[in-house]
């Protein structure tokens, strides 16, 4: 009985992975096909990029402040406060900035896409689009996935900059460190091996958020319960997938840059 349940769960999981893979394959097939829904793409970019900026900015700023405040006493014990800019810079650029921004976007954008497309599926708007001759996959899915893929790296970069500024403020208040010295220390400790892998993985994070959100919304079950479930599972699956991608990205980056 237990074995059968496990087999069923495994079957469901593999079916889900297969469906998502098929969905991703369809995305890569259709993304280069005309017509290009450029206006919708820009609209989605605005919705996902500009409208997430405040949330990402505030979160990044607080992360920078808190991270520096928490680390400072420990570094002070070792007399290594001068290493604070290097430590914060590497941590934020390499890991904290991309993953925190992606998780925030998974919560805000992923659930939004899941709920929006789910409700469109439930209210048969997607079916209506198909009837009217508009390709709903190109109009709804491809534009959203592309928007998340291209907007997330920009959000990560801006989030990193704001987090570093927050960290600088703490250092300036507590340690009387100048702006020039702080950022000089940050960039002297950074290498391309820190910036490039984290930027590349941000594209994958964005793609994963868009893909899972769209998949869950596009394949939503009928009924209002299905919309909620689509939004919820979009966030859960995306969050899990983000950590998996992060793990793979670190392994690959280690091969190329010897981190």
């Amino acid at each position: 009985m237990g074995t059968q349940k496990t087999i069923n769960s495994l079957q469901v999981f593999l079916t889900e992975v297969g469906d998502i893979s098929y969905f991703a394959g369809r995305f890569f097939t259709d993304v280069f096909k005309r017509p290009f829904e450029f206006k919708e793409f820009l609209r989605q970019c605005y919705n996902m990029g500009n409208r997430s900026l405040l949330l990402v900015g505030v979160t990044g700023f607080i992360i920078g402040l808190v991270f520096t405040l928490q680390s400072r006493p420990t570094l002070q014990e070792f007399g290594a406060v001068a290493w604070m800019p290097s430590m914060v810079g590497i941590s934020i650029i390499r890991e904290i900035g991309p993953i925190i921004t992606a998780l925030i976007c998974a919560g805000r954008i992923g659930s939004g896409i899941g709920a929006e497309l789910g409700s469109m599926r439930v209210t048969e708007q997607i079916d209506a689009m198909e009837v009217s001759g508009t390709n709903p996959f190109k109009y709804l899915v491809i534009t959203r996935i592309l928007a998340t893929t291209f907007m997330l790296p920009i959000l990560v970069i801006i989030g990193d900059a704001i987090a570093l500024y927050g960290s600088y403020l703490v250092e300036n208040i507590k340690g009387d460190v100048s702006f020039q010295l702080y950022f000089s220390e940050v960039f002297s400790s950074l290498e391309f091996g820190d910036v490039i892998p984290s930027t590349i993985k941000s594209f994958f994070f964005g793609f994963a958020i868009g893909l899972v959100g769209c998949y869950k919304g596009y394949n939503c079950d009928k009924g209002t319960e299905g919309v909620g479930l689509a939004a919820n599972s979009a966030v859960v699956y995306t969050s899990l997938l983000l950590f998996v991608i992060d793990f793979v990205a670190v392994l690959v980056a280690d091969l190329f840059y010897e981190l």
Binding site: L42, R43, C45, Y46, G49, N50, L53, P153, I154, L155, I157, I158, D160, A161, F183, F187, L190, E191, F192, V195, T199
Partner: peptide
């Protein structure tokens, strides 16, 4: 919206280019 998006993208790319330049 387009203008705001453009500012957002330019700001992000400028920060990225500045960071790359400083590291380089």
């Amino acid at each position: 919206q387009k203008i705001k998006l453009a500012i957002f993208v330019i700001a992000g790319l400028s920060l990225f280019i500045l960071g790359v330049y400083l590291i380089g």
